[in-house]
Each structure stands twice: as C-alpha cells, then as structure tokens.
Amino acid sequence: MDSKHAINPLDALLQKGPVVVNMGMESFFHDLQAQEVPVVHVQWRPPLATQGLLQKLQKIGGESS
C-alpha cells in the first residue's frame, strides 16, 4: 500500500462511518437499520458442508476438459 497517498482503512472507517456486514445476532442488524447505517445481514452457516462440496466442485470443474 502506498502509505503516502492511500488512506489507512481504519481512518477511512472513522471518516466515512460504518457500512456493516452483520454476521450473527439479528437484533444488531435491526438496531443498525434503525440508525440508518447501511447494513446487510448474513444468515451465517458454519462450513459443515460448504467447504467440502465447493472444493469438490472446483476440482471436478477443473478436471472436466
């Protein structure tokens, strides 16, 4: 990162205000919406099945020539 000109992302957060990805308790999402903070709520699921299948799709797709 060019430290002379690029703004530090923490400073950017403080300047701009929060734009949030909320992962977990839905009440936080509603509270942020009530304050008109741009926010998207993630109905988070753990990687129980996800990673395994996605990796396999990646492998199968890559092999399919």
């Binding site: 799709l57 990646q58 492998k59 797709g61 890559g62 399919s64 020539s65």
Partner: peptide
Amino acid sequence: GVGLCLADAH
C-alpha cells in the same frame, strides 16, 4: 449454483 461453480472452475 453447482453449474455456475463448475463452469467457473472449468
């Protein structure tokens, strides 16, 4: 989604 992932990987 499966097809999109496969095509993307391919």
